[in-house]
Design a protein around this nucleic acid. Sequence first.
RNA 1: GGGUUCGUAGCUCAGAUGGUUAGAGCGCUACAUUGACAUUGUAGAGGCCAGAGGUUCGAUUCCUCUCGGACCCACCA
Length: 967
Amino acid sequence: MTQELLDELPKNYQAANYEADIYRRWEESGAFRPETSKSKKTFSIILPPPNVTGILHLGHASMLAYEDIMIRYHKALGEKVLWLPGFDHAAIATQNVVEKQLAKQKIRKEDLGRTKFLLEVEKFVAQNRTTIKDQLKSMGSALDWDRTKFTLDEDVSKTVRHVFKKMFDEGLIYRGYRMVNWCVRCQSTLADDEVEHQEQQGKMYYIKYGPFVIATTRPETKLADTGVAVNPEDERYQQYIGQEFDVDLAGHKVHIKVITDPIVDKEFGTGALGVTPAHSFVDYDLSQKYNLPVIELIDQFGRLKDSGGKYAGLKVKEAREKFVADLEACGQIVKVEDYQNNLSICYRCGAPVEPLPSKQWFVNVNKKTSRGKSLKDLARGAVKSNNIKIIPDRFNKTYFQWMDNLRDWCISRQIWYGHQLPVWHKGEEEVVVSAETPTQVFVLRHGLTDWNQEDGNTRIQGLTDVPIDESREKLVEELAGNWQQPIDLIVASPLIRSRQTAEIFAKYLKAPVEIMREFQERDYGVFEGQSIAEIKTKHPEYYENKLTFAIPEAETFSQVQDRARRGLEQLIKKYPGQRILVVTHTTVIRSLLRLIENPADRELTDFYPKFGQVWHWNFIKENLKKGFDLRQSTDTLDTWFSSSLWTFSTLGWLDQKKDFTTFHPTSVLETGYDILFFWVARMIMMTTYATGQVPFRTVYLHGLIRDKNGQKMSKSKGNGIDPVEMIAKFGADAARLSLLANASAGNDVKLYEEKIAGERNFVNKLWNIARFIYAQEIVPGPHRSTWADKWIMAELNQTVTAVTNHLEGYEFSQAIEALQEFTWKKLADWYLEMSKIEGGKGGLLGQILETTLKLWQPFIPFVTQAIWQHASQELLMLQAWPVAHRTEPGVDQEFAELTELVTAIRQWRAENNIDHKEIVQANFVCNKSSWLVKQLHLVAGLTKIQWAEEVSGEVIELAISQLTLKK
RNA sequence: GGGUUCGUAGCUCAGAUGGUUAGAGCGCUACAUUGACAUUGUAGAGGCCAGAGGUUCGAUUCCUCUCGGACCCACCA
């Protein structure tokens, strides 16, 4: 390895030529899997799942960089390391994106209907997942792709339903009529922390209001006032307390009661607060406290209801303008002031959020759970007891403050995409909750003539879900009791859930049960138990996309359909004209529906299995008369509900899978501080409750990436850096370094092109250090260790210690700094130059490079591997982490004095404008004359230093006494 | 209203449980360069560590206040 190799390696490192190949090599080798280690010691991180909405952004990029460093470091330590990737369906966000796309084609989601719309969403998601996955890979992330999870995967969903039911049974989840935040655009509720506040210039209106003047920024809500609140100590209003008034507001009559509450600020406005219980959180609380009626005024579209009198039907803003004009005309506006207040807006779409009362599902955070404490207290305890450590620790305070103020969490959303609530309604009110997916029950009839149309086709006559739990028997009894026509035969799929349901029906219907294999569903859409390798080869497209409705190896839809067709044909042939109750599964029904030619059913044939239950309600209501009114709630769960279970739902907690027992609690949760509340706090709360374990031991919160001026990067401002472009231009390694260098936990990082270029330059420097070292001859045999050798080894060992300590302490930026200092300033600038003079250092340089690469590998995995593979077939990432050796003490100090001398000489040259070809003679004085040559001939720049002899011993004082030009 | 955080070189930021000469990168100036690397090297300029008090032998570091930014939470109608 000498000159030829040098010629072989390009002068500059071109990242793009190496990265894809190297990543493929890693992945194919299985190095990303925990199984490469036999160690008992484990380390695990669950990747905060990126939304399937779009593309990689810088937040993802820095998250990946931090986590990959930890993962690779712990792998190098030999631990059993898991980094589990996943994707979040991000309910509202995803739905919004798809809605916008459709809007471009002038299609509203209501035009499509829920089922077809969800198909569109699923298509969009499948496309995006491949893109995002490739982007995650492009950062070099050592993720175990074989364990990829999606929040809508069946096993994850099952955990979601299970926890929901557990909480429902304990009374921790309840349904109630309460004030909620309503996004008028998304047509859904939002949790308290999903509402953002934006300062806006508004107006404060002072309105004559019976005997009062009240101040308000939202006059239109006064149409639904039922009270006036004053401070109990306010002398001005004492005579009115407890009285009731009819107030005329420009012709609109409201009846109010005067109440007192210390919450009212005497100084604010006029000290009299008009109470609108239905559209303000404070007012609602007051109304509950003092028994004021609640008049709903604003509807879900942001329009006034009939209670708004002549303003009914107007949008809030229009109503306000009109009402104010009317008040003005009646002389009821006392004054109008400019006023700055906060407008509530939706964090996903930016549309205004209206507080309004609604019947929704809530998590009670204050009720005592089966673990003896409330969710709040469990969450507080986990951090207080130090079972979870938050870095930086100042976020402890933020965390506790948020927890202390936490109110019940509204978890039901009125959007279509997501986990449907595992709740069944019977009629209008009754609620059944089941964690299990339901058995589908329907009645099939061939040659039907007595129903709706006079056709002789086979058709489905009724369809419903039967939840699988203790409520099943009761429901079946009721269903069967409601049947007015006899059932001749019950046909069931052989799977146990269906068989059980069929048996219960048989008891009440007195009909025989026949099992039909043709109506079985075989692992359709289930990932469990399949060989990854098989999936990869047989169904690459499924493997890549992992579509939720068709997971590999399990049957494809057409396979199910073929079989179901055979079953249907047999049935029709064997039992013509009979009424048959079929108990089976979603996919089978879906395929049967496609087979049955009937216009009334055709609408159903597009329905989508994952969300199959949703259309039953309309279908049943419109088309079926008897006994089928059991329907699943159409609401979906807050996406953060499923996310809050993520550390354990991904590891197989429900079935106590080995991954769960091995890797949970996970070691570190690494994410941006901006989702401390949304996600981190809720994970702590829910995981501690559900599993009795903390979700993770350490929380590392990184700062947000901003532009050079500290502004948030955004598309509209055009100040964003696209990580994909950044990687293409500078390489993933440089991108990683630029995101981490000069960053500290919890503090924002500014990113700009010069910074990335700087790191690219470093990567190239390392490349050339390697080029130089590889070109050195390796001279066999033992070598004397020179002063320079001892020094560089001491520096290297100090660096090993420093980097290790920094990594243990989550000080990533400082680790990088230490490594760069060593690599560039010590190794390249000094030692390599000295090695040119001393010569014969091929072997030692090789060792130094090896250790250096091992230290750098977690940070810049691509270039280090690219260098490494010129010398070794093995993968660098599987090499053991370096251990610091003992070195001779004091060498570094001595060496520092030498570098000072050299620098002094160079400075003298520079100041005196000495041409580099000139030879400088330097005379030194030294009180330890025994070891240092008195005269050192230094020629030109550093590259030509002459090391007169090996130096040992102790330098106490060393100084240049004279510098002259040597003739 | 409560809370957090920042103010260190022209720019972006480190740092020290209080202790010699306060660091890095970029930028700037001068010089060099056919030998691993111009994605380079060498040398240099540039800081009252926001301001004012206090604690201390000693403060850029700890405390208080002021000024100036950023952020989070909250029921100012």
